[in-house]
Amino acid sequence: MIRLRGWDPVMGMNLRNARISRHNSSAAIRLVNDKYATKKALAEVGAPTSPTLALLRSRREIAALDWEGLPDCWALKPNQSLGGNGILLAFGRRRQNWTSSSGRRISRDLVADQLRRILDGDFSPRPTDWALFEPLIRAHPELARLSHQGLPDIRVICDRDRPRLAMLRLPTRFSGGRANLHQKAIGAAVDLSTGRITHALVGKEPTETHPDTGARLIGATVPHWPEVLDAARRCAAATGLHYLGADIVVDADRGPLILEVNARPGLQIQNVTGHGLMSATTHPWSP
């Protein structure tokens, strides 16, 4: 019986859902499901986000798109997609076309096709959607060194403006450049006070180094850590969410940027950090 007390701080799906429906208003959830509106709200409280190069809301706007005005590197995203679906990345320009991360050609036709699919809501829970062009984010060299392709990001669980747990998600070859933990990306626990990595998991197995790059993870530090925490702390005020997961990337030039704010953050962070969310989120002034 005594040995089972370790389960008490672990938060399950049921409790998480109850907490979200109690603390996160539907208006706030609607706001964070809309990336464009979220970015505007974040900018209002001075939180760093990636600017929008172009916003396309209808097929007519595809025809009117200023192709020459696009930079060499960009990210094309659906406004409301889930789990990073429907994203197209350009890493360089070759005459009329762009190139992907592996150097494959991205023709204008391909981009236009992707735009049409995004507007048709192929990647979104709604029947129609908008498409956003953003400048391509390049990972900070300190983080790029730890990762295998893809873009590492930091998930910070916040109870209002208080960061509770943080982890760094590093893509692996197996995860195909995505930072999704269930696709075998690495989850690394980050100490909140120092930004140092204390523990890392691939799937369910603890690891000390990145399986693809061999880089040592334990003891590495997330660059610009105070700014990362500061960005995470502004999310509640910007969005109105009381319980949230902020996804933050550290850009090589621009520093920490909030990629998105989740109203329903996952629970896997408990396994990664070895901390139950119950102990991390119950505090005297919590209703």
Partner: peptide, 24 residues
């Protein structure tokens, strides 16, 4: 209204529980 752990979560969060145990 059941807000406890789901039975499948006993497998899912076993690592977290084990490390909380070790800490206590």
């Amino acid at each position: 209204t059941y807000q406890g752990l789901r039975l499948s979560e006993l497998f899912r969060f076993a690592p977290a529980a084990k490390r909380q145990e070790a800490k206590a």
